[in-house]
Design a protein around this nucleic acid. Structure first.
Length: 813
RNA sequence: GCGGCGGUGGAGGAACGGCAGACUCGAUGGAUUCAAAAUCCAUUGCCCGAGAGGGCGUGUGGGUUCGAAUCCCACCCGCCGCACCA
């Protein structure tokens, strides 16, 4: 007898799918069949695929197959997020050009994705580093630029003084440069931004139109961080300047006893030129975000020797500069209400400022000692607040805001935590920003017909205080398309997140060289019906892609407001409870396991290990169990192929295997359709195979053949090679061309049930009962239980609860 | 601190108002084998009991319910995100 041999089965089917282009879909209107777009986040090609990739694509492939067998034409493409830092850092270390190492990695992905048997339409493949792709990334940048959604301004960035370069946030580890360990400084430099803040409200509101996991929705909501409140004007009479502040608590305005500016506030030196002010500001600005952001750090600051007017009390209150106020949020200035804000409280304590309570705790509630009172509900009432005293705190918010508005001293306002997206990188391996600086005309966008601005080859990748692109003199120096004079190219490149913010659009129409896409084609596929990826992208990538789609829709370039209708976020695979990493040496190499067990085993194992949405711990021994299961399925299929024929009828009295097969169809269908419960779906097929084993000598041959074929059909979406093989052995047909099986309701129902008998909710007995018995009949049957009689000993049954088809519960006294 | 998720056998997990522990691993015993591997069969939550049987069990404490792992409240522990955001 032969044995299950994935090494012959898997390449055999892979060849069929490759030769026939089985998973390719055209952009033609299919007419009768509905389209579906199933997409997994594109991989970042660095080294070899790891176990996380295997999980993502195993989940996505199961969804794609399930949809296909429900009659959909499924777009299921693949590409590579090829630009980015790891390839560049690798180049700096080894001298190997980023293009080479990236393309080597892409080849590895291409090979392994095929070995895994993922059902991809390879005709749509691309890398974001190809000029045919990034030409349109640049084109989109220019459209955003035209609309003022891409702009330049000075911003604080991380700067490593030793490497003389700007660093991305993720390159700053504990306040130090990840490469040389030098403490990072903050510098003000001109940078490119996307005006994502303009879309804050729509990004927030439209979350309700998409079906995403609640925790991702919450994370995005928190990231956008919308706060409602008021803008209030504090006037510095001496200089005649109005300083607006944002507050969420205008009800505490009567308690504002001081005023603070952020160290970066442009007016600080105008207000005070004192040496200690300069010293403080210089120190604060140089401090790392890490140090400055430490909540437990003692409050520091310097008085400016000036006052502003509290608009409701008319009092003059002192001005300070302090680093606990952030320039990026609100107006870069705050009113200090020490009685009702913990930070202001700490500051006031330090500087001996008046702490004036203007909101009283609810009756009977103690007033807090040694900290601010932040209560803000209908139960807290205002005191020491002139005409507003006695009002509840929320009521006072409205009344005081209205009062201010009437006098031109304030107005309702909304603030967001969200900042504009800093997209420029002083790096080589990225998409060039298509902008020129002309000696005469200033900043000039590269005309569309000159795109792409191709990334030139350079020899030295290490940044030296400016982008490595600056060393490519021939490339940098060019002529201005407006005046024909001398111009220099922008040498910054784009953040990799820009490339991945629209790739799902390009998949729809990947070879279009006239436009980034044909709108008509996009209409057929977008939005993505099911998007799948790691939760680590819950904020950045998923927010940026939404922003791009909204901006492009506003330009009338496409017809959807949201890119991803449904999102599934998978959990991480850990090993020994720890995140896998090369430095820990606890990584699992998929190719090693594919070599030993075959791709089907690995794919099933990764889905069987637990709910795919949760983190799961890799256990080597578990892989063997799944291999055993697939072997058993193959063995029983080979055996059944010899002993029975496809012509054997599925008739006669229902056997246990036949019932189990229909039960499995029903279970797998529900697990796949209603939730991503692939682990229990696989367990159901395991149960079916176990049942087949028990019954394989006794079951009618037609039933046996049907049950084995069903097991092949159901496992196909997780183990496509074996599923196809088993199904062909049993039926001579191709499983992916078959519709999804349907369970026969008549075979799901049993004639006899085990009626559960409970006493006060506790199980005491099980008695056989007809499935169709009425409630009265069930109660009678339960009453006749011997165990019930033995337990009752004199107690009285006061009530019987009958759950038809399930149980009878007797309540006794 | 704020927000989110989660605590079930020796391990991963299942059940998500109605039989707690499906399925898999591990362990133990048996068959097969000269032997091992592989394979197959059986047992496997804990405690008492020779057995029949009984008791206890889903982080802790309350509550709702005929009935709670499941719903509600409080707390403890773990993980993730954000964090001086006014």
């Amino acid at each position: 007898m032969q044995r299950y041999d994935p090494k012959t089965i898997e390449p055999k089917w892979q060849k069929v799918w490759a030769d026939e282009g089985t998973w390719e879909v055209s952009n033609d209107d299919p007419g009768n069949r509905p389209n579906a777009y199933v997409l997994e986040m594109l991989p970042y090609p660095s080294g070899e695929p790891h176990i996380g990739h295997l999980k993502t694509y195993s989940v996505g492939d199961a969804v794609a197959h399930f949809r296909r067998r429900h009659g959909h034409r499924v777009l299921h493409p693949m590409g590579y997020d090829a630009f980015g830092l790891p390839a560049e850092n690798h180049a700096i270390r080894t001298g190997q050009p980023p293009r080479e190492s990236t393309e080597a990695s892409i080849r590895q992905f291409q090979k392994e994705l095929r070995e895994w048997g993922i059902s991809i339409d390879w005709t749509r493949e691309f890398g974001t580093h190809e000029p045919e792709y990034y030409r349109w990334t640049q084109w989109i940048f220019l459209r955003l630029f035209e609309r003022g959604l891409a702009y330049r301004k000075e911003a604080a960035v991380n700067w490593c003084p030793k490497d003389a370069t700007v660093l991305a946030n993720e390159q700053v580890i504990d306040g130090r440069c990840e490469r040389c360990g030098t403490p990072v400084e903050v510098r003000q430099l001109e940078q490119w931004f996307f005006r994502i803040t303009e879309y804050a409200d729509r990004l927030l509101e439209d979350m309700h139109t998409i079906d995403w996991p609640p925790h991702v929705v919450t994370m995005q909501e928190n990231w956008i961080g919308r706060s409602e409140g008021a803008e209030v004007i504090f006037r510095c009479e001496e200089l005649g300047i109005d300083y607006p502040v944002f507050t969420t608590r205008p009800d505490t305005l009567f308690g504002a006893t001081f005023f603070v500016l952020a160290p970066e506030h442009p007016d600080v030196f105008r207000l005070s030129d004192a040496p200690e002010v300069h010293e403080y500001v210089n120190h604060a600005v140089r401090e790392s975000a890490e140090e400055r952001g430490d909540e437990h750090k003692e409050k520091t600051g310097v008085p400016l020797g000036r006052t502003v007017t509290n608009p409701v009390t008319g009092e003059q209150i002192p001005m300070f500069v302090a680093d606990y106020v952030l320039m990026e949020y609100g107006t870069g200035a705050i009113m200090g209400v020490p009685a009702h804000d913990q930070r202001d409280y700490e500051f006031a304590k330090r500087f001996g400022l008046e702490i004036r309570r203007v909101v009283e705790p609810a009756e009977g509630e103690p007033a807090p000692e040694g900290e601010a009172f932040v209560g803000h509900s209908e139960n807290e009432r205002l005191v020491n607040s002139g005409e507003f005293s006695g009002r509840s705190s929320p009521e006072a918010v409205r009344a005081i805001t209205a009062w201010l508005e009437e006098r031109g001293l304030g107005k309702p306002a909304v603030n967001y935590r969200l900042r504009d997206w800093l997209l420029s990188r002083q790096r080589y391996w990225g998409c060039p920003i298509p902008i020129l600086y002309c000696d005469e005309c200033g900043m000039v966008p590269v005309p569309d017909d000159q795109l792409p601005v191709e990334l030139p080859e350079v020899k030295e990748y290490a940044p030296r205080g400016r982008s490595p692109l600056a060393t490519a003199e021939d490339w940098v120096n060019t002529t201005c398309p407006r005046c024909g004079g001398h111009a220099r190219r922008e040498t910054d490149t784009m953040d990799t997140f820009v490339d991945s913010s629209w790739y799902f659009l390009r998949y729809c129409d990947p070879r279009n060289d006239q436009a980034p896409w044909d709108r008509e084609v996009l209409r057929r596929w977008m939005p993505v019906d099911q998007y799948i990826g790691g939760v680590e992208h819950a904020i950045l990538h998923l927010m940026y892609a939404r922003f791009f789609v909204k901006a492009l829709a506003d330009m009338d370039l496409l017809d959807v407001q949201e890119p991803f209708a449904r999102l599934f976020t998978q959990g991480m695979i850990t090993r020994d409870g720890a995140k896998m990493s090369k430095s820990k040496g606890n990584t699992v190499s998929p190719s090693e396991y594919v070599e030993r067990f075959g791709a089907d085993t690995l794919r099933c194992y990764i889905l069987f290990i637990g709910p795919p949405s949760e983190d799961a711990d890799w256990q080597d021994e578990g892989v063997g169990g799944v291999y055993r299961f697939l072997s058993r399925l193959w063995t029983v299929a080979a055996e059944t192929a010899e002993r029975t024929t496809p012509e054997d009828a599925v008739d006669g009295a229902p056997s246990d295997v036949l019932r189990k097969a229909h039960w499995a169809i029903d279970k797998v269908t529900r697990d796949m359709r209603d939730r991503f419960a692939f682990n229990t779906a696989i367990a159901a097929v395991m149960e079916l195979v176990n049942e087949i084993y028990r019954q394989r000598e006794s079951a009618p041959s037609g039933h046996l053949r049907f049950a084995v074929a069903t097991a092949g059909s159901l496992i196909f979406q997780f183990a496509p090679h074996l599923g196809a093989e088993v199904y062909e052995l049993m039926t001579g047909r191709r499983v992916w061309e078959e519709p999804w099986p349907e369970a026969d309701p008549a075979l799901l129902a049993r004639e006899e049930i085990q009626l559960v008998v409970q006493l006060n909710g506790k199980l005491i007995d099980r008695v056989p009962a007809p499935a169709t018995a009425s409630s009265d009949e069930l109660e009678e049957l339960a009453r006749s239980s011997d165990k019930l009689a033995a337990r009752l000993n004199g107690k009285e049954i006061v009530r019987a609860i009958v759950v038809p088809g399930k149980l009878v519960n007797f309540v006794v006294r």
